[in-house]
Amino acid sequence: MAFIEISGLKKSFGNQVVLKNISFSVEKNEVVAIIGPSGSGKSTLLRSMVQLETVDAGSVAIDGEYFIKDGRYADSKTVKSLMTKIGMVFQQFHLFPHLTVRENLEIAPRIVKKEDASIVARKSEELLKKVGLLDKSDAYPGKLSGGQKQRVAIARALMMEPEIMLFDEPTSALDPELTGEVLQVMRALVKEQMTMLVVTHEMEFAREVADRVIFMDGGEIVEMGRPLTIFTNPRHERTKLFLKRVV
């Protein structure tokens, strides 16, 4: 069984089907880019993996343990322990505006994992250094640029020491000149062999860092393969059309 195993995932909002029958797997240390037009179900797919959406049918297993099996969720303890393996970064950052940058990083390890203050402080310092924002430790998110906010959000997710990172259009809300700094932090994570699922419109980035690219359209996976294949020699008409429009 692969590190992440997804099969037959289905999800509807009312009578609108968003995920038709999604199956794929991700190996450990693999970086998968998910591309596709808006409304194709990419975000819903990621959100389903962290229970921000409940699915109607299908299975999700992480590290050999079922989180959802045939549409049924595991008991809350299993779900909780599996969720700690996954970190997520949102398009709109969702930093906590009433907490400083440092507090944003430290709050979850402190109250969820009940980690010791000194350990947490060391970890947050290390991560802030890594994303290049140590000098912003005591600033409130309101004072940061979009790129800085997203780097804080990545550091905040990493504080929980996840084994998988999900990125839901991490650069889509940024001014073009600010996407670079965020992508750079993500590249560093790739180098550290983080398992990553990235929903993105940054085709250049997908081509460069992804081990595999999944093209979704209309709630289903149309095509999946090596970036080179997908970008230079797509098999499906829908993929060709989409790439022609965005590249």
Binding site: L52, I86, F90, Q92, H94, L95, F96, I107, A108, A157
Partner: peptide, 27 residues
């Protein structure tokens, strides 16, 4: 309060009470 605040708290593993206490009420 933006619903993203609840979502961010949830994916960080906070339960409902923790979310209310440290994220929602102060805001």
């Amino acid at each position: 309060i933006d619903k993203g605040q609840y979502e961010a708290a949830q994916v960080l593993g906070m339960n409902r009470w923790q979310t209310l206490r440290v994220i929602i009420i102060p805001q």
